[in-house]
């Protein structure tokens, strides 16, 4: 049974359907990619899955349990955490305090400081621990958001463009991190525009276009799929 399952999710802004009956699954121990051109509805789907937006119709299931009506905090305590495309760091706090806030809310709250420091160390952020979060360059800030999400020891991790603003070497290191997370049994859902990253780490890729899933499958197939290219280039 897949760990996370979205079934027939529909979201409308005014008359426009941002998501139209979208279904998707993410399994433990695998990295699931979610790609598509701008405005395809990827971030909206993340909002629905993480509980920040109620869908008009459709369900979200975690471990088979229907969590559609639960709020974001409840879902976080069930083991879900996420990052944001438009950074949502706690800018007035230091990097370490950003992680500490999460640690004190998460399963590791008994040893919050240790939990936070361990994640800082794993991401190589220890040297920046006392820097104010709003002074970081974008690439590092995104990594701090990933770290803040990891502190919760999530079973489902939603990453919204985590590698934007990173250089090739940083991206390579990040790919290794994603693989090791999956190896630990986390279900990772990844929205990313860097195709080489998506194609190298994902076990399965969903392609979203104008609120529809237009293709899904292993990366090698997706790369050769004509409908996917059409989605990116505009319909012929």
């Amino acid at each position: 049974m897949p760990l996370l399952r979205a079934e027939g999710v529909t979201v409308a802004f005014g008359g426009r359907r941002a998501l139209d009956s979208v279904s998707l699954t993410a399994e433990a121990g695998r990295v699931t990619g979610l790609i598509g051109p701008n405005g395809a509805g990827k971030s909206t789907l993340f909002d629905v899955v993480s509980g920040l937006r109620r869908p008009r119709t459709g369900r979200v299931r975690l471990d088979g349990r229907d969590i559609t009506r639960e709020g974001p905090a409840r879902r976080a305590r069930r083991g879900m955490s996420r990052t944001f495309q438009h950074l949502e760091l706690f800018g007035r706090l230091s990097v370490r305090d950003n992680l500490l806030v999460a640690a004190e809310l998460g399963p590791g709250r008994r040893h919050a400081a240790r939990t936070a420091d361990a994640v800082l160390d794993r991401l190589g952020l220890t040297a920046l621990a006392e820097d104010p979060a709003d002074a970081l360059p974008t690439g590092v800030a995104r990594l701090v958001e990933v770290g803040r999400a990891l502190v919760l020891r999530p079973r489902v991790l939603l990453l919204d463009e985590p590698a934007a603003g990173q250089d090739a070497e940083e991206t390579e290191r990040f790919a290794a991190l994603l693989r090791s997370l999956a190896a630990d049994g986390t279900a990772v859902l990844l929205v990313e525009h860097d195709m080489s990253l998506v194609m190298s780490v994902c076990d399965e890729v969903y392609v979203l276009d104008l609120g529809h899933v237009v293709a899904c499958g292993p990366p090698a197939l997706i790369q050769r799929d004509e409908t996917v290219l059409a989605a990116y280039l505009g319909e012929a």
Binding site: S50, G51, L52, G71, P72, A73, R75, A76, R77, M80, S81, R82, F84, E88, L89, F90, G91, R92, L93, D97, N98, L100, V101, A102, E104, L105, G106, A112, R148, L152
Partner: peptide, 23 residues
């Protein structure tokens, strides 16, 4: 302490605070 950090976190991003499990 913990509560002060939470207050500042809440001010900077309510969305992030909620998705971390904060009330």
């Amino acid at each position: 302490g913990r509560f002060g950090r939470r207050l500042i976190a809440l001010r900077d991003s309510e969305a992030a605070y909620a998705t971390l499990g904060g009330r």
